[in-house]
Each structure stands twice: as structure tokens, then as C-alpha cells.
Design a binder for these strands. Sequence first.
DNA 1: TTGTACGCGTTATCAT
DNA 2: ATGATAACGCGTACAA
Lengths: 328, 328
Amino acid sequence: MAKAQRRITALDVARVAGVSRTTVSYVLNDTPSQSIPQETRQRVFDAVRELNYVPLSAARALRRGRNDTVLLVTPDWPLGRLFSLGLAALMDELEGHGLTLLSRRQIPGRPLAALWREHTPAAVIALSGDEADEQAMREAGIFFARLTSSRTGDVVPPQEQVGGIQARYLAAQGHRHLGYAAPADERFRAYRDPRVLGARQACRDLGLAAPDVVDIDLTREAAAAAVRRWVNRSPAVTGVIAYNDEYAGALLSGLRELGLSAPGDLAVIGVDNEPLGRFISPSLTTVEQNHEEFAARVAQVVADGLAGTTSPMPPPADMLSLVVRESA
Amino acid sequence: MAKAQRRITALDVARVAGVSRTTVSYVLNDTPSQSIPQETRQRVFDAVRELNYVPLSAARALRRGRNDTVLLVTPDWPLGRLFSLGLAALMDELEGHGLTLLSRRQIPGRPLAALWREHTPAAVIALSGDEADEQAMREAGIFFARLTSSRTGDVVPPQEQVGGIQARYLAAQGHRHLGYAAPADERFRAYRDPRVLGARQACRDLGLAAPDVVDIDLTREAAAAAVRRWVNRSPAVTGVIAYNDEYAGALLSGLRELGLSAPGDLAVIGVDNEPLGRFISPSLTTVEQNHEEFAARVAQVVADGLAGTTSPMPPPADMLSLVVRESA
DNA sequence: TTGTACGCGTTATCAT
DNA sequence: ATGATAACGCGTACAA
């Protein structure tokens, strides 16, 4: 039985390759200030393969002062669908850039600094962040990507735009009086408020009355009640913006219960392009947030930031697409 | 302007607290073999707070030979919905145990060892793994959690059980001749095959004929064609198992196109409990895989494994629940 | 071109 | 009960 065997270090590689440990390091990091003959390099590579040597990230990090990782700081409220699904994609994208994603939850009281001081990542991704935090990280040489920022532009699609797209589409279909089915659940505030705001702004820009916002629970009964309110209103609401496809589904269900249908009696538009939306009747018109595109964009911003390249950062609206079907 | 300031180390804490570095380390890790007077401990804690000291994980890892991280090795085929959604939850759960999740994609050619040798995690989570890999990790003192294992029992719900539950439910509703709507897309093989197998086994156990498996694309037309085949068969198929809710939705849509309906003409049961399933008509009967429970279970297994506790590992079937609605 | 030597911050062994 | 000191593996200035 083999005794618990020692780790294979760069020194072992050096011995096998018949060079010094320094040379191994130079070759593996191809240090620009050193020129190693090709033959020597090959000997090192051969030894690496033979020994299955892999550098210990902890030692690298200790020495270089930073890890080849990206720290994702997640908020304490529940992540939306865009984020949950984008997470796996983000990991892949970053790995393509030689980076490993690790994530920690943001504790409201605790300062952000505690997290990156502990992990010393190459970059930090956060939904939002103090000016002070950002400054401190800059000084520490850590690239900081803030996903939502009113000043520098967002990486994440501004939720205002989501509401705006919905409102404009309904208006384009001839609807003059809109409703908004918003979640009563407080936990969705972070998404709900900007979406409602965006819809309201779009209506104002279009010269329409502000949408009639109704907070509903996610039940057919609550949805039916809202529908009744809208159709009986005068002037009647003819198009309604749903917070997401789930709420849109509830509205469709409520309409059926009342013997009404979309889009004739009430047009409905959702958000998220849930898989079932295309198979229901009427099929659901919706706004899709492409989470893979989202992940790719975030990864690109980080990679560019680390490379010192000024990230092009095209408008995030590209990540939003309108999926027109039958319900509106 | 402050010059790029030095890191705050345990030595700084020691100086402020008026003790030695060693004592600081003892207090912070409360080393069992040492008993430090309460007053000294407090002085150390105060100094830590005052200086906002946070231990550098890289240095810890280098010295202790392992990180406080869990390495998730993901397969190279696309992760299912259970996994994608469970990922965020898994991160949270592990953080609750003082662990940080980091993930790397499994490269088919590359040995698993390259990954954990580099990161030296406390534990590794993988979908599957060599016997040799497992052995090597055991020797290296790394806990290995294999999510699917035919021998030791799975952490992830066996997909065979999913198919079994679906088949048994339909049988309990009186259906004697079943169909299975499977994805034609090759990328779903890893889930598709065990689910079909489970359904087939359940049918055999129940004395039913094997389900008529039809591979379909995710379109209404393909679904309608399959439906036509089933209802015209003799004996007619009266209940059909869908690979997931999306395929179930396609079937429902196909039924409508043919002027038929569920469950009267053909009962349909799905998998995943997609959000829209409860609002469509007929509402969708389905098997739910609770991804949060899944994440919690995985985290528990890892935490128990690290603590040396023998994990209780109750049957993963708890993670599956039947959601009975109208469609079957 | 290659080798020697030091330090990164922490934990653990051994004295005191 | 506390302190001095030696590793952990790697990168790099400097010497040869």
C-alpha cells in the first residue's frame, strides 16, 4: 500500500526535467523577460505531463496576491430566473477565460471588503456596490463589475426596459388603456418596481394614461378579480402587462373562468418566455431575457476589465427580445 | 492620498492585542489542545474587529493543505433544469456550512485529479466518477460525493424513479396501455434513457405492456402526429408519459389541434412542475423534483462527510412529489 | 541561460 | 499559557 504520498511540486518537475525549479516556473508562466531555449521548454513540458504536475492555486495566490477567480456577490433577496439560469452559463463562460467562479451571499450588515479580502479574487461581480467599496477594490487591484449602475450603464438588462417594451408593444397594437398585474409578494420588489416604472414612463412618452397597477396574488381567483376590474372600468382596460409569464398565465386562467378570452377581451403580455408559453392557448406573447447572452456579456466585461481593455459594452437591450404570439 | 496599503495580517492583530501571532491563531481557530483565558481571547477579538482583520484563505490553504471550498465538477452535457436551478440553492446551503462552492466543467479527456489537485478543495461533488479517482481522493483526504451511483445509492433522484412514478400513477387511474413521448434531441440522452427505463420497468411490474415510446421534436405538429398514432392504435393508448412538462404541453397542444382533450381522449403527465402548468387548461399533472430540497440534501451529505458523520442518506424519492391536476 | 535565496500569511511543532 | 520558529509551494530579484 502506498503511503500517503507527498504532493508533486515544481521541484519534482525540475528534477525530472534536469533543470532548476526557477526554469520550470519561467517556462510554465512563460515569463517575458526570460528566453528559454525550445529544447529546455520541451523537457519541462514532458516532465509536467509525465508527473501530472499541476500548480497549486493556493501557493500561486499567496505569492501573487490574487487568485484566478471571480467572486460573485449575490444579494440576500431571492435571485430571479434570469440569474438562476444564468449562473451555470456564467461559470462556463468564465472558465473559458481561465477563471473560476465562486459565490458568496451578501450579508446586509457585513462590509463587502470582508469577502474579497478573504478570497483575493481577480475580479468581483456584484449587483450593486458602495462607492467606497469600489474605491477600495480599485486600490487593491481588483476589477469590479457592478451589474446595475445608474451612472456607468448596466450589464444586466435594466428592468425598466422590460416594462417599457411591454407597454410599447401593447400600444402598438392599438391599446390605449393599460393595466399592470404586479406581484403582491414583497420579495419581488427589486424587480417589480423598476418594471412598473418603465411601463409608466413608456405610457407617458406615448401620451397614454398611466397603467392601472393592481397587486395580485398568484391565484386564478385574484387574477379573475383583477380582470373583472379592468374590463368593467370605464374606459375599459384592453391590454394588460403581466409581471412575468406566471402572472400572465394566471390572468389567462382568470379570463377563462369569466368566459372571456385573450386577446379579444383583454390582451396579455408576460416576461421570461417560460417553456410552456408557446403551447398554451392562446399562446403567450412575452419578453424574453436571454440568460446565456447575459452570462456571456458579464463574462466578457470581466475578461476585458482584467485585460485592461476598455469594454465595448453595447446596449444591454440586445438581451431583451419580444416574442410575439397570440395572447397580445 | 494613502499609499497602496499593506494587508492586515495576524501579526498586526497580535501587536494591537499585545500577544503573539501564535496566540491569535489559537484564538481564531480555537485550537482544542490549547486553553486561552477568556480575557486574552477577548483582546484578540477586539483587535480583529478594530482592524477589520480577515484571514487570507490562500495562506490558510497553503498551510493546511486544503481549502474551505467544495468543487463541483459539472458534466460536459447541458445541465438539466433541476441542476441549473439547484445551483444557486446549493451555493447558499454550502455557505451555511462555512463552505464556498466553486465549479469547473469536466473535460472528457482530462483526468479529474487535475482539478482537485489544483484547488485542493475539502470536498468534490461530481455526477459520476472513476473508482480510481475516488480512491485517489480518499488518500488525499478529500471527501467525494458522487451524485449518481448504482452501488452506494444516489443523491440525485434516480431518473428511473421519475418514469416509474409517472407510469404507476397512470396505471392507478385505470390506464392499461401507455405511451411515452421522448425527446428526439440526443443531448437529453442522459435523462431520457433512465426515465424511459423506469417507466418500462414499472409497466412490467404492473403486468402492463411496455409503453409505446415515440421520439418527437418539440413542436405541435410532431406531438399531434404522436397523439394520432396513439389514439388510433389498437388497443388504443389512453395515457401518455411525457419526458417533461414542455413535451406534455406540446401533447396538449397537439390534442387541441385534433379536436381532442385531456384526460378524456388521452391522459398526459409531465415532469418538472413548470410554473405555467397550473394555469393552463387542462392544468398539468406532473412529477416535481424539488431543487431546493435537492440542494439541501447534497449540502448535507457533503457537510456530514466532512464532519466524519455517516450521512443518514434517506431515500432520494423524498425529493420527488406527484402533483395531481386535471390532465391525468 | 540557469541557479540561489527570500518572502507571501498562516498553522503547527516544540520549547519555555 | 504563551512565544519562537519552521514549513506549506510558488514567483522573482539577483547572482553566477
